[in-house]
Computed example of a mutant assay.
Amino acid sequence: METLKIREIQPEDNQQVAGVVRSVLVELGVPKVGTAYEDKALDDMYATYDKPRMSYFVVENKGKIIGGAGIAPLPGFEDEVCELQKMYFLPEARNRGVGAQMMNTCLEFGKANGFKKCYIETLPYMEGAKKLYKRTGFENLEEPLGDTGHYNCTVWMIKDL
């Protein structure tokens, strides 16, 4: 059985993480504007998340990054609401329980850092992600929260921590 390891991002992971996120977005046919694809943060995820109450976690398999997810304060609701961000997995990481493990890691980090709720934005056709979010206790919202800049993401969900 292979050993998958979830750990916090390191500076040397930046290039692999950006590659994972962009390749998954392209695979899923996600628009390159109004989504994570064009975020400047993608090229230096370590520095982006190396701040108080923020973290980006990666899934590593034999030295290769096969997925990741971040947690950060939601702009406009920083005190009480965190946002699950840039959670993407290569095909080889899917349907193996990695998403649920990553979700737990991120939600525990949010709770430990004093957040009361967790917010997510996604795209309507990201069925696997939406199923995972529902299983984890996220509920749909009628409109977005905060100012993420991801105007093409039209599914908004929230969960109490």
Rank of each mutant, 00 (worst) to 15 (best):
R135L: 10
K134N: 01
T136F: 12
F109A: 00
G149C: 09
G97Y: 01
Y125F: 15
Y125T: 13
E92I: 07
F109P: 03
G110R: 02
M103V: 01
D160Q: 09
E139I: 15
L145R: 04
A93P: 14
M87D: 04
T148N: 04
D160H: 06
G110K: 02
G99A: 02
K159Y: 03
E139G: 07
V155T: 07
K86Q: 06
T148Q: 03
W156Q: 06
E108G: 06
H150S: 06
A112C: 05
L107F: 02
P124M: 00
I120L: 15
F115L: 12
R96Y: 08
Q85L: 13
L161S: 06
G137N: 08
G128Q: 11
Y88A: 04
L141F: 08
H150T: 12
E139S: 09
L145I: 09
M103H: 01
G149N: 09
A129G: 06
F115W: 10
F138W: 00
Y119T: 07
N152Y: 02
M87L: 14
K159C: 05
E108S: 11
H150Q: 12
K86G: 01
M126L: 15
N152Q: 11
P124V: 05
A100C: 09
N95P: 13
Y133Q: 00
P91T: 13
N140C: 00
